[in-house]
Amino acid sequence: MKDISIKELENTATRMRMKVVDMIYKAQSGHPGGSLSAADFMTACYFYDMNVDPANPRWPDRDRMVLSKGHVCPIQYACLATRGFFPEEELDTLRKEGSKLQGHPSMNKCPGIDISTGSLGQGLACGVGMALAGKLDKKDYRVYVVVGDGEAQEGEIWEAANTAHKYALDNLVVFVDVNGLQLDGTTDQVMPNGDLGEKFKAFGFDVTYLDGHDMAAIVKALDDCRASRNGRPKALIAKTVKGKGVSYMEDQVGWHGVAPNKEQYEQAMAELRAQLKA
């Protein structure tokens, strides 16, 4: 895959987190917690693993990304802008009238968005459709779907998992962002998920557990998924911290869908800047 060091990927992830905080602060609206928990995986996909072409966003042979937990789109917008899908200045338009950057991603407004999402539980089925089309057309592209652990309470996720198994979609990778929190509380309080890895195994997936903030582990998992052509879809069960990288947001239910004020913004940016490695 792309020749980029783990350290550079880690610094890129930190820069993506800074853009997320900056966007949501300027919009005074958005979902920082889940955007930050998914930042390392999203960075690894867009800057290491995925074959995409910013000049041709609908290139038929591209790898696809489905952000099933669509509310964390600030992290995807940060990655897309940095990869050159649209000018970085447009990140300042998040959630504003007329913007490409809708509150939840729209494929017909924003280049690089492969399917519109926002209503939880629906993205995996769409990803299954894309992966199935790849198999029908004998194309070699990969499909990534990011699912939240709270979102895994939706029944359609499991209907789609059945279908991925039936059609032997080894070109499909589900990244489960296990940050343990959802809007109304912890996942254990609201609706305990049990072991999501065991559930995906029972549905016929190859399952890998990993630390969702360990860049080397993410890169290895992506390499392993890409190398495996065994007819089984892949699930990466990533233990993450909601709000990762900003001390006062980490593991706090209250930072699901709230924008920082000026003081909090400045603290967050200073903390993230300090995480950049020389």
């Binding site: 399917i115 769409c126 299954v128 459709g129 089309a133 057309d137 789609a160």
Partner: peptide, 10 residues
Amino acid sequence: GVAAGLATCG
């Protein structure tokens, strides 16, 4: 949803 994904691929 599967149909939607298929349709994005033509």
